[in-house]
């Protein structure tokens, strides 16, 4: 079992991709003060992929997510979901944030039922759907609680349930577990794997943790900063492994080392630049 390089931009024809990112770039500001957040990149994501984008801060991974989510518009290129050009936020792309995105004035049930309500479903339908996803993430006993009454880990489960309740085409996750303690995070990572296997959702997962990416992903895109760009891409078998100890296997560690070396090859240049 291992990881193997692949061409993330030509994995399949754009017409076959669930999410087709072609020549997308992002420049903030203009003239002398322009900052290149993302140099033109191509990325094809197929239906059911669990794609992790991993890299240090400033590599453009969050920029990429914001562009796919429609919170920001690309400077160049196009992003299409099922052939439809993305022009703004939409319910077919569910987003899970790092923290602080829950609605504190609504209880857990109302938070999770928000999506179906906002997309025009009745209260009864919305609540029924919300309860179903809350059961999936093990929060059925906390429906009447307010987000601030829950622990950080439970808050993130609410965020995941809320995004899932709309049954989106793709889930966009922006370092959802970065603010959690190690034990809570490890537990939730296992749950996310199960959730992905059960739902078969296409997931775009942003993280700075190589381990997290190896543990979850079917495909890993490694990015590096200044300017933000794709450094390499790998297919990974660890994400679908049935072995509960896969994260401490020698192959896993070797793969982690391979990616660390790839990223640290940049480091001397960085030192010189400063």
């Amino acid at each position: 079992m291992q990881i193997e390089p692949y061409e993330c931009g030509t994995r399949c024809a754009p017409s076959e991709a669930k999410l087709a990112i072609e020549g997308v770039s992002k420049i903030y500001g203009a003239g002398a003060e322009a900052v290149v957040a993302l140099t033109p990149m191509d990325l094809m994501v197929r239906d059911g992929d669990f794609l992790c984008v991993v890299g240090p801060s400033g590599c453009g991974k969050t920029t990429l997510l914001n562009l796919v989510a429609g919170f920001d518009t690309p400077t160049g290129g196009s992003i299409r979901l099922d052939g439809q050009e993305i022009s703004g936020p939409g319910a077919e792309r569910g987003v899970v944030f790092q923290q602080g995105a829950l609605f504190n004035w609504m209880n857990v049930l109302e938070n999770v039922a928000f999506g179906p309500r906002a997309t025009g479903h009745s209260v009864a339908v919305a609540h029924e759907r919300a309860l179903r996803t809350l059961q999936m993430v093990g929060l059925e006993d906390f429906v009447q609680k307010y987000p601030y009454q829950l622990s950080g880990g439970m808050q993130q489960r609410v965020g995941i349930a809320r995004a899932l309740t709309n049954d989106p085409e793709v889930l966009l996750m922006d370092e959802p577990f970065a603010a959690l303690d190690q034990q809570t995070r490890e537990g939730l990572l296992g749950e996310i794997r199960d959730l992905w296997k059960r739902t078969g959702k296409t997931i775009l997962w942003i993280t700075h943790s190589i381990e997290e990416a190896l543990f979850l992903a079917t495909h890993i895109v490694v990015m590096s900063p200044r300017p933000g760009r794709v450094r390499a891409a790998f297919r990974s078998e660890f994400g679908t492994s049935e072995d509960p100890m896969v994260a401490v296997s020698p192959e896993f560690v070797a793969a982690k080392r391979q990616i660390i070396e790839l990223l640290s090859a940049e480091a001397p240049k960085e030192v010189l630049a400063q």
Binding site: F71, A91, V95, A101, W105, F114, A118
Partner: peptide, 26 residues
């Protein structure tokens, strides 16, 4: 918080829903 507004938008909320259920209570 911009995040809360973005969260609501990506859950399918239009301008009025964002105002009445997010901006106003917040």
């Amino acid at each position: 918080s911009e995040k809360k507004i973005q969260a609501a938008q990506s859950l399918g909320a239009g301008r009025w829903t964002v105002f009445s259920r997010i901006v106003l209570p917040a």
